[in-house]
Amino acid sequence: MSTKAIETKCPGCGAMVRLGAGQKQAFCNYCGSPVTVEDTREFVTRNIDETDLKRAETEQLIRLKELEMQERRERKAEGRKKAMGIASVPLVVVLLIAFAIGAAEPSGSPLSDSAYTAGSVCFLILAWGWLFILMGNDKK
């Protein structure tokens, strides 16, 4: 004995929904949308607030943009650290040579004073650069 079944399209995804004989309501197996049938005509029940759906989509897009911007800031900071690390090598070499010359020369000589000045300038540049990077002073 065969039973009569009604097939109708799901309003949510377009998949075919099968209702058994005498069955007035079913749920789509793919998207879960409820489908109600009366007198072989389709009646669709949708309880989706379009405003809430749009709000959720917008919030998701905003969050994705925030994550993208955060990733960009982190890459910039890494680039600055790498650049400062590379720039630090010659500055440290100059600083060490300057202090070595300053220590080797007699105190008060023009070369000694110039060497100490050059070493101090290198030290200040290094300190300022690393403090800037370590403090995370990056503009958004």
Rank of each mutant, 00 (worst) to 15 (best):
M1Y: 03
S2Y: 07
K4Q: 05
E7L: 06
T8M: 01
T8R: 03
C10Q: 00
C10Y: 02
G12I: 02
G14R: 00
G14K: 00
A15I: 12
V17W: 01
R18M: 08
R18S: 04
G20R: 10
G20I: 04
G22M: 08
A26E: 06
C28L: 01
C28N: 02
N29M: 11
Y30P: 05
C31W: 06
C31A: 04
G32K: 09
V35T: 11
T36Y: 14
V37C: 00
D39L: 10
D39Q: 10
T40I: 15
R41N: 09
R41C: 06
E42L: 09
F43C: 05
T45V: 12
N47K: 15
T51Q: 14
T51V: 12
T51E: 09
D52C: 10
K54E: 07
R55W: 14
A56H: 08
E57G: 04
E59R: 05
L61P: 12
I62Q: 06
R63M: 10
L64P: 11
M69N: 14
E71L: 04
R72C: 12
R72G: 03
K76A: 08
K76H: 07
E78M: 12
G79I: 03
R80N: 12
R80A: 11
R80L: 13
R80K: 15
K82L: 14
A83Q: 09
M84C: 06
G85L: 07
I86W: 14
I86Y: 15
S88R: 05
V89N: 08
P90E: 01
P90H: 02
L91H: 00
V92S: 09
V93F: 05
L95H: 02
L95G: 01
I97G: 13
I97P: 08
F99T: 00
I101L: 06
A103W: 11
A103D: 08
A103P: 07
A104E: 07
P106F: 14
P106A: 14
S107E: 13
S107F: 15
G108H: 04
G108P: 03
S109R: 05
S109F: 03
L111Y: 03
S112D: 04
D113M: 07
Y116P: 08
Y116V: 05
T117V: 09
T117E: 04
A118D: 02
S120N: 14
S120D: 05
V121A: 02
F123H: 11
I125A: 06
W128E: 10
I133Y: 08
L134D: 01
M135L: 12
M135K: 15
M135P: 13
G136Q: 01
N137W: 11
D138C: 09
D138Y: 11
K139P: 02
K139I: 04
K140L: 03
K140A: 03
